[in-house]
Simulated assay, not measured.
Amino acid sequence: MLTNQTQFPLISIVLATYNGAKFLRTQLDSVLQQDYPNLEIIVTDDNSSDDTLAIVESYQSKHSIIQIIKSTINQGYIKNFEQGCKLAKGEYVALCDQDDQWHPQKISKLYQAIGDAALVYANSVLCNENMEPIGVTIADRVNCKNFSSPLEQAIFCRIYGHAMLIRNEFLQNIFPFPTIIPHDWWIAYTATVNGGIRYIPDQLAWYRQHSNNVFGAVGGKRNKAQEVQVALKEKQIAQERIELFYSYCPSDLEQEKMVLAKLNQYYHGSGLFNNLQRMILFFKYHQQLLASKKRSQLRQWLFCLKMFVKII
């Protein structure tokens, strides 16, 4: 139990809300039950039309560490999180979804583990809509470990914002959050070249999967309408993402910069030779490019083969 507030730097919890009244109380209760003694809670509401604001205001009346930022327009979850992060005064920042539940020691354990890394993240228990564990954790489905190369986050990111603690000095230097990828992917990618990413296996959050977030859930399935939408935009988004990642990667990381430059070239190019070069590049660097995927060697090779006909 952490009790002496003077020994611990301020940590900002940024809770982004939007029409989250159904599950919000569970999350707020778990945040307020953290044993870390020096917190501020910044709630940024994205123009909710349900009882979300009323719920947060009722908690604010009893807890002075809560501040509320109300948006008059709906700006989307990425910019909603960005708004809260820009206001964070803490030395560290923890991102908070509106529908999960945190372990009482989540913040304290992440704080103790971050060291000199840009961010640290932990494992989470996957739950159904009623917050009942479904028998697996995120680490059962994806490869959770320390990451230190931008190539390891360039194709897939399986580090989720709700599980992160982020060094604020680093965070304030990566605005604006691009809107072509989730904010936590941008944070994870940029963290690899600003101190690295540390992982601890502790299960510190219960991650609720339900109809409003299943598209983003680990192992979740898209419905047909989402499949059509994703298919139309996937190539353009992948091209823009790789170009963005290439531009951000510092030149002193010579190998990583070279690989990202070739990825950028082969993602934008066309023709059989271009596609063959893209596939060969994936085979050569598959251990880094597929570092987040928990797959057998055979399945990794099959994925590389698929890169001859499409980009991801």
Rank of each mutant, 00 (worst) to 15 (best):
D35T: 14
M307W: 01
E243K: 08
S149G: 04
N213P: 03
F282Y: 15
S12P: 09
N223T: 13
G269V: 11
V43Q: 01
N74P: 03
A139G: 11
Q112M: 05
E234A: 11
Q67D: 13
Q101M: 09
Y266S: 08
M1G: 06
D140M: 08
W206V: 01
D97Y: 07
I114H: 00
L289C: 07
I68D: 01
L15F: 07
D35K: 02
N274F: 14
Q7N: 14
D116G: 07
K294N: 14
A217K: 13
L281W: 12
Q27F: 08
Q27A: 04
F156R: 10
F282I: 03
E57R: 13
I114Q: 00
P133D: 14
N128G: 13
V193H: 11
D252Y: 09
Y248G: 13
E152Y: 02
I66F: 09
P178Q: 04
I41V: 11
E227T: 07
L244I: 03
K262D: 11
S247K: 06
E240M: 10
I242P: 00
N168K: 08
R208D: 02
T26V: 05
A261R: 07
S124I: 14
V214E: 13
S108C: 11
K224P: 05
A231N: 11
L2P: 02
C157T: 07
A94S: 13
L289R: 02
L53Q: 10
R158C: 10
I180H: 07
Q83Y: 08
Q7D: 14
G84W: 00
Q60E: 08
V309F: 05
Q288D: 09
I312K: 09
E40P: 00
A205V: 14
Q67M: 03
H268P: 03
I155R: 00
A225R: 07
L302Q: 06
S124K: 12
N123H: 09
M164F: 11
R241G: 06
R299Q: 12
L302Y: 07
A54D: 12
V14L: 14
I166G: 07
E234G: 08
N19D: 14
I197T: 01
V43T: 00
L15E: 01
Y248P: 02
R295I: 15
F282L: 12
V259M: 11
F282G: 01
T192M: 13
W301Y: 09
D184T: 08
S58F: 01
L53F: 05
L298Y: 09
I159R: 01
Q229D: 12
D184E: 10
A217H: 06
D202P: 03
L263P: 07
H210Y: 06
D202V: 06
Q239H: 04
L15G: 05
S247G: 11
T72Y: 15
N213C: 03
Y18R: 11
D50V: 04
I166W: 12
L272T: 10
R208Y: 03
P150D: 03
D202L: 10
V93N: 01
E40Q: 09
G115S: 06
I138K: 15
